[in-house]
């Protein structure tokens, strides 16, 4: 029997209603339509796409900040739509934690590191002060901070160290899943490598499952086991990292990969030119939402919306591939 998936998502949808004016009908914005995946302990799922593709909405659903409009989500084997919501949700929130992009905005400048790290313990556990302190120190050492840092304020740290504090805060309740929202994109290259190494090490030691949201494909390729590529709220390609990167099927994935600059001086690589910008999600194109920018688009793409289907090693939503 295969092990229990930590996250089981089936057709997650999230619509927001937008007020357009007093006498106008409300519009519905499809921030996320139809994301499905399984994530197991010790694995990393990378969610890739441009801004506005629904990456962060997915993170908000997974961390239970918001409820999905439709679809099923189970965390650690418990269906979130089931009864006894409040009790279950409180317990589940401890198993899923989040690390944010900007380590300068995500730490309270008025709290000392020790207080920042203790707060989840005060709220969620009945440990006493000295037990809490032990746990805080244990975790600080684990992420590479020194004991004396416990009495310092966030402004006394560099970006990389702050991100270590944010990681420690996410791990203090011993979660099983960590959602990482662009955890290294605000950091310098040399520090980025330090933080990525820490994340990889923690995953191996603690068996964490990561949902890694990023737009940097070279980082994703390095860290991810599975990749989910999204465009305008819809998944367009999904599969094991190696399969997606070595043999991308969807024209958007291909364009994204070819737009990513590579650190070698061979300039003969042919670039797929993506013209235009992301359309507004309030007024998405008919049919396949990628067709106005797609170089392979045919007449049918304007009318028929593709669905995710298995092709070779990956699932793709493209009429031409399927």
């Amino acid at each position: 029997m295969s092990p229990q998936a930590l996250i089981e998502a089936r057709g997650l949808h999230k619509y927001y209603t937008i007020k357009t004016g007093m006498f106008e009908p409300n519009q519905s914005l499809q921030a996320l339509s139809g994301a499905s995946f399984d994530l197991y302990a010790g694995q990393t799922l990378a969610v890739v796409g441009e801004s506005g593709c629904g990456k962060s909405t997915l993170a908000r659903l997974l961390t239970m900040i918001e409820q999905p409009t439709a679809g099923q989500l189970s965390l650690d084997g418990i269906d979130l739509g089931s009864a006894n919501q409040k009790e279950v949700a409180k317990k589940l929130r401890q198993t899923i934690q989040m690390v944010f992009q900007d380590p300068f905005g995500s730490l309270n400048p008025r709290q000392k590191v020790g207080d920042i790290l203790q707060e989840p313990l005060i709220i969620n556990t009945d440990l006493n002060a000295s037990q809490r302190r032990d746990r805080v120190l244990e975790l600080m050492r684990r992420v590479g901070l020194l004991d004396e840092h416990i009495h310092r304020y966030p402004h006394m740290f560099s970006g990389g160290q702050r991100q270590r504090i944010a990681i420690a805060r996410a791990l203090i309740l011993k979660p099983k899943i960590v959602v990482l929202d662009e955890p290294v994109s605000a950091l310098d290259v040399s520090i980025q490598a330090q933080v990525l190494n820490l994340l990889i090490e923690l995953q191996q030691d603690l068996g964490l499952a990561y949902v890694f949201i990023s737009h940097d494909l070279s980082v994703v390729r390095h860290i991810a086991d599975q990749v989910l590529v999204m465009y305008l709220g819809k998944p367009v390609e999904q599969g094991m990292s190696e399969a997606v990167f070595s043999n991308p099927q969807h024209p958007y994935t291909q364009a994204l990969l070819s737009a990513t600059p590579q650190a070698n001086t061979d300039r003969k690589r042919k670039r797929i030119r993506l013209t235009g910008e992301l359309p507004s999600p309030l007024n998405p194109p008919t049919g396949c939402s990628f067709h106005p920018r797609c170089q392979n688009a045919v007449a049918q793409c304007k009318t028929t919306a593709p669905v995710m289907a298995q092709y070779e090693d990956v699932s793709v939503a493209c009429l031409l591939v399927n």
Binding site: A193, N197, I200, H222, A263
Partner: peptide, 12 residues
């Protein structure tokens, strides 16, 4: 750089 990495751990 991650693309130059030969193993899972990067040369930070």
């Amino acid at each position: 750089l991650p693309e130059y990495a030969k193993e899972k751990t990067l040369n930070a």
